[in-house]
């Protein structure tokens, strides 16, 4: 009688332990979106960041009231804004594959995220840039953002082979712009910046 009680109690406890273990193991399973998230590397403006599939160095940031989409031979289109343009100039070198798909965001530091503008066709992700392995490509990414949102911007870029950015390599670059320095840049925004086509260096 008492033997069977101990037996039953042990079975019950073991079942509970197993259930708890199963639930614990389940919580470790990655969701579909986590499994295919871009793999991120981080760094600062001016330093070369190794994002595994490519390296990137953000060379400079410009803040301007209007952009011109053109080259030395002439301006094809220009875009003014009620807000402000943030132009990020960077050199990207692919390590082993030809990368064609570019996605870039600007996290303004204010809880808002903006994706790259499709207006200037010369910018990365427009008609031009292809990143062949070993060949540095210099070019621009343009963002149009409300002035008051810009507090401590971080530039995020993802490059991949195909049309999707699943498992693409992401670089997060702290643009090092905040406080009085940023306010001055916005106040003294350039009148216009020409987005030149991506160039191989």
């Amino acid at each position: 009688m008492s033997g069977s009680f101990v037996h039953r109690a042990l079975t019950a406890v073991l079942s509970l332990v197993l259930l708890a273990l199963i639930m614990g193991a389940h919580s470790l399973i990655l969701s579909d979106s986590d499994q295919t998230e871009p793999i991120a590397s981080s760094g600062d403006i001016g330093s070369t960041i190794d994002a595994d599939r490519y390296t990137i160095k953000v060379e400079k940031v410009q803040i301007t009231q209007s952009i011109a989409d053109g080259d030395d031979s002439g301006i094809q289109a220009s875009f003014e804004t009620e807000e402000i343009w943030v132009i990020v100039w960077a050199t990207v070198t692919s390590t082993s594959d030809t990368l064609r798909n570019v996605q870039a965001d600007l996290d303004t530091g204010d809880g808002y995220t903006y994706s790259m503008s499709k207006l200037p066709l010369n910018a990365f992700g427009g008609t031009g840039a292809v990143f062949d392995p070993g060949i540095p490509v210099y070019g621009a990414v343009a963002f149009e953002v409300p002035k008051e949102r810009l507090t401590d911007p971080t530039f995020r870029i993802r490059l991949g082979k195909g049309g999707q950015d699943r498992l693409s390599a992401q670089a997060n670059v702290d643009l090092g712009l905040y406080g009085a320095e940023l306010a001055d840049m916005v106040d003294q925004a350039e009148e216009t910046v020409t987005i030149t086509p991506a160039e191989r260096r």
Binding site: S115, M116, L119, L121, E144, V145
Partner: peptide, 17 residues
């Protein structure tokens, strides 16, 4: 499409713009 560049798809719609 944006009226500002009607020949190219707009891409994504940006916050509060």
């Amino acid at each position: 499409f944006l009226e500002r560049r009607p020949d190219t798809p707009a891409g994504m719609i940006q916050p509060e713009m």
